[in-house]
């Protein structure tokens, strides 16, 4: 398990190499990258973070995913700070012997990252700023996993 919570950007290709650079490559690799949406009038996305808590929470989420699916490797990077539209926010790579496990685990990890990891987004538009509020659908998505 590799978890990073940091301000610096990441290079997707380097992260894939880091996952592949082992003796016995995994048969299935899922890669999710979340980026800052290019919205009209959006100048910046500021992400506040409680790094120690975020890392703890991400570890718990990965542990729950590993209890549920057979995963070989998990690599997660979540950025914070001031980001431009189009910049990377989050990377989740899961690997497994089978595609079903790594697809599902990747989606599970992202769904829980949105609502359980200690990050808060603030949108800075040309004419206003707004803290993003947690969506009811984000909570219901997590509950759906719990009922599966």
């Amino acid at each position: 398990m590799h978890i990073e919570v940091k301000e610096d950007d990441f290079i997707i290709e380097n992260e894939i190499v880091a996952i592949e650079n082992i003796k016995d490559p995994d048969a299935a690799i899922s890669i999710f990258v979340g980026k800052v949406r290019k919205e009209k009038k959006l100048i910046k996305l500021f992400i506040d973070c409680y790094p120690e808590m975020a890392e703890n929470e991400i570890q718990k989420i990965v542990q729950n995913a590993s209890n549920r699916w057979k995963l070989n490797q998990v690599r997660i990077i979540h950025r914070y700070g001031s980001l431009d539209p189009g910049e990377n926010i989050v990377l989740v790579i899961t690997t497994s012997d089978h595609r079903g496990d790594c697809y599902s685990a990747n989606q599970f990890i992202m769904d829980f990252l949105k609502s359980e990891a200690a990050f808060w987004k603030k949108e800075i538009f040309l004419d206003k700023t707004k803290w993003v509020e947690q969506k009811v659908t984000d909570i219901s998505t997590m509950k759906d996993w719990q009922e599966d």
């Binding site: 979340g34 979540h78 989050v90 949105k114 609502s115 808060w120 509020e133």
Partner: peptide, 10 residues
């Protein structure tokens, strides 16, 4: 002890 709003990561 930390205080914050509901999280909005990802």
């Amino acid at each position: 002890v930390a205080f914050f709003p509901p999280m909005t990561g990802g």
